[in-house]
Design a protein around this nucleic acid. Structure first.
Lengths: 195, 195, 195, 195
DNA sequence: TCCTAAACGAGACGGTACGTCCTGTCTTTGT
DNA sequence: ACAAAGACAGGACGTACCGTCTCGTTTAGGA
């Protein structure tokens, strides 16, 4: 119900949309975000440039959609019964995706640093989802009493994702299973004081 | 002085160098890294484009030099006698500089994400100095026995700078004195376990 | 009514046709042929582009129809009893229409220069009618013996319309009553030799 | 001497200018004015589009220059001793050039009909030269007493060039040697009255 | 004091991508 | 079947910068 009011005119072509996202993703993998151009996407997708501009405001938004289309499944929230175990499982999955997603993510971050308008979109459509997933895990731990009531959960978020991004950006250390365990352990220890 | 090997021909103009760095810094403050162009710098500095290309390889390197020329002093290493106090003092100073440096830093990061060649330069000329400063503080704490011998200092680095960068990039929380205290406290707690 | 062979489906909308011709004419007057676009006509007429393409092959043909719809009456053939008087009267009327028709005519000519296909249409639907009118006048003069039998009437046509178009195109001189008189006089003199 | 003040900076490339005019002329001959595009010229000349826009305001002005570069020699003024002979000789040469120049001329005319700004340029840089040549011939005839003192020379200009353009535009009759003779004869007759 | 040579400002160069406009075709729903 | 609406592929537009080049001019040291 909701709507039913079909706008008049030819409807948006789903085929074109798919072709654009596919072409964008392929270009990103092959040549990187820095080499991504609207003309390149249009040519590869067999589409007019106007068709891209009609539905996206910039190549960054196309790239974001191309990423989301692939990473749409999302990360399942683990429930292993304890904060450290939950966190370890969650981080392993998250880190595991960086192998393929990483370069695209770096490009999108670069764009959002250069273009404040896109920064908002990026935060709302991508980061928010990731933070929500971690939020669920932390709230479970609060409910179990593993995290003291007054703890600043925002800081914990920033630590977890700060380490992820820092290592992604500067390659100071690998994002592997050990890294997941270590970060989970650090977080767990930092909230256990005073027990 | 020592050398004497003076190349023939007109020597490099120090005035031009200063004008270029000044113009670059002004453009960065007024319009941001995303709007920075070689032509804009040249025009503003009253300089030919070739003069810029003669001495720098890209606008990113000019911007980096323009930043370093201003932020040359560096951050003094505190020694308050304890890890948490040292860390708090250090982070307060570091965070305090982000007000002005932040936007430029973001631009340089963006560039280093898009251009792997510049990423190296950025890491070597900028990040390395920051990590060394923190390293001194952590080593002091290890020497005092505040940090257990086997602790992964790299992870602590990544946590401290990860939170800094994450908040700088995504504005998830302010970088103020409270933040400095909270991060220092979290680090201190995370290493105190087992005492 | 006579026919009865009514094709199935919705009949052609006379309202749409009128709206298109009206919109075209208005656009021509307001912005000139050079600025005329199919999209502009469609938007102004409140009509789909397809509806225009269904009935006309190009914007030039629409413009031609828009002109003909207005200038349909045609020019009456004078019969004042003598070549020079007939010609003067005819040219006065013809020149008088250029004030309003001129700009549109220039646009159509431009189109026919760029598009050989339209050139034919333009000649057949517009120029032929004009030449026929002049032909009647000259034939009257031949019948009266004012023009010698062997005279090249085609050249006279070309002189009369050549001057008209040349002045219309290049504004080398006004197209007023004096001009009509002078051209008529020149023609009359040029054929009177040998009397 | 006149100047001597060389503007600073790299001077305009004569090679580029020649390449552009050559490419334009070739495109005009091969594909016609209607198909002429800035991109086509630039590609064919091996030149950046900006280089064209730096020196010409539109493709019409490039085409005009390309035409003038070829037809630079101009038409020599005959002096056969009599108006009709002079005119015949002049028109034969003029008509003779239409074989190759004609299509380009038609394109330029089309453009000047669509773009009033270019119309001026066209008149000043092309038509004016042609009218001046005819003016010399007519003035010779006036000096010789072949044309009565009070005659409207402007009208004679318009007749001569009106017929030329009319036949060029509408192909109502060929522009051959006979045509030259007939027009010369008509003009001569039209001014001989009253002798 | 001149000579050599590099750096300087200026700005034109070939080139790439931009974002917009319009073309002529198509695919919907509504009449 | 025709109409309004509007999305589609395509192509040219004119602009902005890129990094390179070619001028005449300036500024030093060495001859």
């Amino acid at each position: 119900m909701a709507d039913g009011t079909r706008r008049p005119g030819r409807p948006r072509s789903e085929a074109a949309r798919q072709a654009i996202l596919k072409a964008t993703h392929d270009e990103l993998l092959e040549r990187g975000y820095g080499e991504l151009t609207m003309e390149g996407i249009a040519a590869r997708a067999g589409v007019g440039k106007q068709t891209i501009y009609r539905w996206w405001r910039s190549k960054a938004e196309v790239a974001l959609d191309a990423l989301l289309a692939v990473a749409a499944e999302g990360i399942p929230i683990p429930d292993e019964g304890g904060l450290e175990a939950d966190l370890t499982a969650f981080l392993r999955r998250t880190y595991g995706m960086q192998e393929s997603e990483g370069p695209i993510l770096k490009g999108l971050l670069a764009q959002s640093l250069l273009d404040p308008g896109f920064a908002e979109t990026f935060r709302d459509h991508f980061l928010a989802g990731r933070r929500a997933a971690l939020g669920t895990i932390l709230n479970q731990a609060v409910a179990r009493g593993e995290i003291p009531a007054g703890t600043d959960l925002g800081l914990l978020h920033d630590v977890v994702y700060g380490v992820l991004w820092y290592r992604l950006l500067f390659r100071s250390a690998p994002l592997d299973d050990d890294a997941a365990r270590d970060v989970a352990s650090l977080i767990a220890r930092s909230v256990r004081i005073g027990e």
